[in-house]
Write a protein that binds this DNA or RNA. Structure first.
Lengths: 202, 202
DNA sequence: GACGTATTATTCCGTGCGGAATAGTTGTGA
DNA sequence: TCACAACTATTCCGCACGGAATAATACGTC
């Protein structure tokens, strides 16, 4: 009864829409840009499908073949699969889990670099986030223009909100670094100077 | 020349402070609550150290032994290691990478549940985030009281900022769901009703 | 002083991810 | 028209992760 992976959720969600075979899922995910939200590679996808079939969350409904192409196995979601899908979505919605993003690690160790360099690097990051926000806003505009219900793109709004928050924090922090308001430990790493050990947060 | 993992960065950062053996790193990380920022398990840590030694980023400086306890190998960071550490931190600071958090997947598929249930689940999530924010603020207060420089806890401020943004978004969305302002597709999954296929974002 | 638990320090191994390989088939351009 | 690229559909395999195992010793307590 282990909790499903994000890719697993997507697989079951697709099969909840209609029966299909693995490669069809793969294509659909790319077509819908779900590969921006879920990490998807052929290997993991086929493996997930295989395990779901073994666990009875999905079931073979046909084995087709066109010409001399490889056989393709069409799957359907089972009632058990539907229930697991619902349960997993519920759990993922309700429980906040630490996913150990790497940026906090980097800022946590940023004192290994001089303040000016950190400010510059954060500037690069800020630029790339702004660019990403540009794409997202353009997509949202196109979607709204087509009059599609917001409920289907809540995740885009969510992601956008967090990116905006990060951009704001970066602007603020870069400013504080450049103005010298944010005191920076002596540029470490360059000399053999002793460094003060960092303190525990808790 | 593959890019270092977050755990790898932490390992090198510790050795940049002073020479030590693997278990000492492990203890220090827990003591400093770095296990909240970096995923650390004995297995991964020892493996990382092993590989760094093979790659010349760190070097054995002593093999000690107390009584009949297992030998412990003390390592020091090399110049190459120091350089890799700087380079990796710089890269992690400057480049925004998609890390595929699972919550967007869940909201993306939330239409499988009825609006009321989603609102309730988001409420649970909101509560747990608020609790987490409580801990963080308490920690920050304690740290500030000790007069420690902000530069060392930038990552806590960053995390706090994102959590606040998420909390705000959740409040807003829960409100929209409860007021009915956010139109929700017919509660899916309960009936065999045909569902409209979702649109591509891009 | 004996027994259980926590600490020290490291190794081992199952599991699963994901990049690459495979192999046939349709499309394209010179 | 013939080669070469892109697509269809799936399998394979290496490698890293991390939970559990190990094993000796210190410590607390009844």
């Amino acid at each position: 009864m282990t909790t499903l992976s994000p890719l697993g959720v997507t697989v079951l969600a697709l099969l909840a829409e209609r029966d299909m075979h693995a490669y069809e899922m793969y294509q659909l995910m790319l077509e819908r840009s779900e590969d921006k939200v879920v990490k998807v590679s052929p290997g993991s996808l086929y493996r997930a499908v295989e395990r779901f079939a073994a666990d009875g969350l999905i079931a073979e409904v046909a084995v087709e073949r066109q010409g001399n192409r490889p056989e393709r196995t069409v799957y359907a979601i089972t009632d058990e699969g539907r229930e697991r899908l619902r349960a997993t979505i519920a759990e993922m919605l309700g429980r906040h889990v630490n996913e150990y993003p790497e940026f906090p690690v980097a800022i946590g160790e940023a004192h290994h670099l001089p303040a000016a360099e950190v400010a510059e690097l954060l500037g690069v990051r800020l630029a790339s986030i702004r660019e990403l926000l540009g794409f997202i806003d353009a997509s949202l505009a196109r979607i709204e223009a087509r009059g599609l219900p917001t409920a289907y793109i809540l995740n885009v709004h969510y992601t956008r909100t967090l990116l905006v928050a990060e951009a704001t924090w970066l602007e603020q922090t870069i400013g504080d670094l450049e103005s010298g308001e944010l005191a920076w430990p002596e540029a470490a790493g360059s000399s053999g100077a002793k460094r003060v050990s960092r303190s525990s947060v808790h």
